[in-house]
Design a protein around this nucleic acid. Structure first.
Lengths: 149, 149
DNA sequence: TGACTGGGTTCTGTTTTGGTACTCACTGCG
DNA sequence: CGCAGTGAGTACCAAAACAGAACCCAGTCA
């Protein structure tokens, strides 16, 4: 058996595992959610999330390295940076939304259930999978994986 | 406490945080994916994932406590259990699929890109959010959160 | 000049991981 | 009957990740 302990070019490490390595922890996803809400600055993240600074530093670096966020200067004189989501980062929102929705449906404390709705009409959104060709939504049972080598 | 083994330490932890506490780690999601592929038995999980037994034990227990999986005996004489996803566990698949898709699109190593398709027609699936009322898909920008207290 | 602010880094514990090795209950075999 | 084999864990231990307090540094403002 492989006993792979390496984190580099994993031989049979799945992409999913790399994805989880990048965003599969408590803070990263919270950071991404905060970023989707418009938060950009280091201290604002720290303040909003209640995360310890050193961990925030590491998480932001990991996300920058992973291409999820970008660090850009927003002023020169006292050089200051801001962190914003890249398009790849924004593309994580379906996963984020799916997790939020799942939690609200299955882990709700009954206290304050949050429902995500389509802003223009206020209807609760659905997230079944969509096939453009068949113009239909479908469940996980109708998914197949195709490998494009 | 007969219900979920929550450790009651959360001051006002968001539901998302609880969700991440439950499934937001490398192994839990891999276990759920394996379960979606039909794996049921302790040793099959261990073998399929290459996870150490004690960790598998802990993860499975956490998932059982969280209502994602259920542990049921499948034979009595040498008492043996199997772990299977509850409906709540199956409901995690959109999140799982979103993560897999994101990874394949943005973290692909070019080596073997996996594309998830609609089984009946083979078209790559989409996962934008769907509004039944407006009969349209839309992006994260059109999502609003409504609090039902 | 000295205080202040944004954006970190260093240096400590503590918690969580992951692993090896062991146990326990049961079965089938000779 | 005793013994190897299997499924499902525990006990314990090292290593990594996490969390926090304190500190640093560059630049600006008064």
């Amino acid at each position: 058996m492989s006993t792979t302990g390496d984190d580099g070019v994993g031989p049979d490490v799945t992409t999913l595992e790399r994805t989880l390595k990048l965003v599969g922890d408590r803070w990263s996803i919270l950071i991404i959610r905060a970023a989707l809400r418009g938060i950009r600055r280091f201290d604002d993240f720290a303040d909003d999330l209640g995360i310890a600074r050193p961990i925030l530093t590491k998480r932001l670096q990991r996300l920058v390295d992973g291409g999820v966020m970008a660090k850009e200067p927003y002023q020169q004189h006292p050089l200051r940076h801001e962190y914003r989501l890249t398009p790849a980062g924004v593309a994580l929102s379906p996963a984020l939304v799916a997790l939020i929705r799942w939690g609200e449906h299955h882990l709700a404390d009954g206290d304050s259930e949050i429902v995500l709705v389509h802003a223009p009409c206020g209807t609760e959104l659905e997230q079944g999978f969509w096939c453009r060709h068949c113009a239909t939504t479908f469940g996980p049972g109708a998914i197949r994986a195709r490998t494009d080598s």
